[in-house]
């Protein structure tokens, strides 16, 4: 036998549009804008130069996914699907995998998670006011909502006229996990990725300690943390309505909509954070819990997922 060992060498080009600093705790923080918000990568590396490369690797991945899957990106596949005017669109491997995944999530949530429910935003504007939509306008949109109306025959997708899809409910988490995969393949383990609040820790810090992640208080967003979560190697994601809600007659209407009624899920928590093996898992579990309304806590308990709920 000949058990030869192959030298693993990977080459990646050099980076831009990133700011770097060294935090008090000694790690490097790389910041950039992507996926519609601030993103950061925390790394335990001694030098900024080394870190720049790895932060860029994560940034490139975030921007690649944004360009491909954001519904605002005119060159992206979601844009192409939403503007196909009832014609079938052939998807590549990655887009098809995301749709398959969305379909699985639709099934696992008994139809509550639905990537076609974005159409309802035409009726709903969650601006903290008391301006509820006209119930008739909501009802009028319902025929354009529902994954069961979509013709998904991998790799071909045909959306009935008037329907749209939005992968915003999974895109950011997906980007976090893919960026983590890139860093991991580049040999990095002491790092934490945070794309707009969706987090994945690739491994403990260089000193063996966990990364500490604070969970934002939705009642004082940006100013206070309700809890510090230690992460060694796992994902953490939060679903919540920090500023996106309506309030009328003492009743709060969160931005999580039930695709079957077109109305917000009643009695849902203000914020659900879940820790799971991947960021996508964490994000989906948090979303599913939100969609369960008052049963959010029970659901997460039954699933055995470590969670933090704020009512």
């Amino acid at each position: 036998m000949q058990a030869h060992v192959k030298q693993r060498v990977s080459y990646t080009p050099e980076p831009q549009n990133i700011t770097l600093r060294i935090a008090r705790e000694g790690h490097v923080v790389g910041e950039f804008q992507a996926l519609g918000g601030p993103c950061e990568v925390l790394l335990d590396l001694p030098g900024l130069d080394d870190a720049r490369h790895f932060v860029a690797l994560a940034a490139d991945e975030a921007r690649r996914i944004e360009a491909k899957f954001s519904r605002y990106s005119a060159s992206g596949v979601v844009h192409r699907i939403n503007n196909a005017k009832g014609r079938p669109v052939t998807l590549d491997e990655e887009a098809a995998a995301l749709l398959d995944f969305a379909q699985t999530c639709h099934r696992l949530s008994d139809g509550a998670f639905d990537i076609t429910s974005g159409v309802l935003r035409r009726a709903w504007t969650f601006d903290g006011s008391d301006r509820l939509p006209d119930p008739a306008a909501v009802t009028a949109l319902l025929p354009h909502v529902g994954w069961h109306r979509v013709n998904w025959n991998r790799p071909e997708l045909r959306l009935p006229l008037g329907m749209q899809i939005d992968l915003g409910g999974v895109g950011k988490e997906y980007a976090v996990d893919q960026a983590a995969r890139q860093l991991s393949a580049a040999g990095i383990s002491a790092a934490l990725i945070n794309f707009g609040g969706d987090v994945f820790a690739l491994g403990p810090r260089a000193n063996g300690e966990p990364w500490m992640v604070g969970i934002d208080d939705p009642r004082a967003t940006g100013q206070a943390c309700v809890r510090a979560v230690p992460l060694y190697r796992s994902g953490l994601a939060t679903s919540g309505d920090a500023r996106r809600f309506l309030q009328k007659d003492g009743e709060r209407y969160g931005h999580i909509l039930n695709p079957k009624t077109g109305w917000p899920v009643r009695g849902a928590p203000r914020s659900v954070s879940v820790k799971a093996d991947s960021c996508v898992d964490a994000g989906m579990l948090a979303t599913f819990a939100m969609l369960k309304g008052p049963d959010a806590e029970n659901f997460l308990k039954t699933e055995g997922a470590e969670h933090f709920i704020i009512w």
Binding site: Q2, H4, V5, Q7, V9, Y11, D49, H53
Partner: peptide, 24 residues
Amino acid sequence: VQPWEKDLLAKEEMQLVPDRIEEF
């Protein structure tokens, strides 16, 4: 050597055993 400096090293012919059959 940084990862972005490994353009030459990443080439197939820079493997320790670039041609297994020749080696065999």
